[in-house]
Design a protein around this nucleic acid. Sequence first.
DNA 1: GAGTACGAAATCGTATACGAACCCTAGGGG
DNA 2: CCCCTAGGGTTCGTATACGATTTCGTACTC
Lengths: 227, 227
Amino acid sequence: MARTETAAGSKSQQSYEAVKARIVDGTYSPGYRLVLAKIAEDLGVSVVPVREAIRRLEAEGLVTFERNVGATVAGIDPTEYLYTMQTLSIVEGAATALSSPLMGPSDIARARSVNNEMRACLEHFDPVRFTRLNQDFHSVLFENCPNPHILDLVHRGWNRLASLRSSTFRFVPGRARESVEEHDDLLRLIESGADADTIERAARLHRSATLDAYLAQSGARPSEETP
Amino acid sequence: MARTETAAGSKSQQSYEAVKARIVDGTYSPGYRLVLAKIAEDLGVSVVPVREAIRRLEAEGLVTFERNVGATVAGIDPTEYLYTMQTLSIVEGAATALSSPLMGPSDIARARSVNNEMRACLEHFDPVRFTRLNQDFHSVLFENCPNPHILDLVHRGWNRLASLRSSTFRFVPGRARESVEEHDDLLRLIESGADADTIERAARLHRSATLDAYLAQSGARPSEETP
DNA sequence: GAGTACGAAATCGTATACGAACCCTAGGGG
DNA sequence: CCCCTAGGGTTCGTATACGATTTCGTACTC
């Protein structure tokens, strides 16, 4: 008897994944009000597992929850954005540094290939694809990180950014070109067996530069659009 | 009207804090089986809020949870310990570096005073007090960190270590003396307005040294080495 | 005596129900 | 005209109940 339900896991788990997916892929954008009863009905479960799922998402920072008021998809307060990027730069830098000694030639080749695709995207101006490839590139860099805690923190940061992407993943052409060059620099560093500190610093600076570019472009004004 | 009930919070919040406190203070030691119904009865609430509390603690790494089996206080697998310490060294290093420019003379004085108390503890051999003072010292160093995400990660790491303390917070006299000296070094660095990178590295190395001392003493052989 | 099959007890997972807190609108008084 | 208050509706928070799953003890077979 193929009980796929067992593999899929509990309804709480299903709910968690379903809501998370909707947040990350943008179905529920920041500010969206998450009503327990409504989600429960949509998913065909009761409110108890949904509530649990929402609280887990809250712990990951994807959702804000207020007692007796309810949950909303976490927003894009510029300060919060700064904090998220700063945290990500730290944990991703560490993850990349820890991962780099474990990267084989095939990993480096794959990263380089992705980066070349990104360069191509610059020619045809394909920001959507560029963004996805950028994530792929960084994934290759840090996925070998042997410390699962750090890896988890990196993934949370990326999910958080993805949930905000409509407003914050704006394509900054000048920065994109720089970014691709820095990727090559990073790969060369790793290939040459640079020490962990150097790689960590380079990876961190790479992200900080992206943050700076974003701040410079958006000015003090964060893009909060609610059509 | 004073609305203090928000802080006291829901029963879910109460349960969370109660169970967390028992884990951190050692009432529930690693491996302890957390039976929902029993905890619910102890706290005078029903199982629903307790379940939610347990899942939150799971997200923080204090509890392991297995579907249809139950929850236990997270254990002390040496590999896991290495990961936790490594992660803590990274986030605490960053927190200290971000915090240091915001530390005033009074903060430094307080840290120094705590460190002197620690030195005194070395004379009378008071490991329990030494451990608590050590936490106080580091708290002063990173509590000014303006990034709440990083601060939260640091607190989680400390809680996790506290929950394991019976086995892992072993007092290593030689290391303790070194530790106190390093604390003074750190304070001097901060006082002299050293740049963030320097402070971060020093703070991180300080923790790494503690980890190394623990590994050397316990003879645990983790699956990988940190350079 | 060892291994297996079965059954009872314990515990988890979720649905349902109901009370409590909050928000929003309407109406009266200053 | 504005502020304050009252009421209803919506949504959350938790208790209770019951089905589902695992675990463990016991008896039976080889």
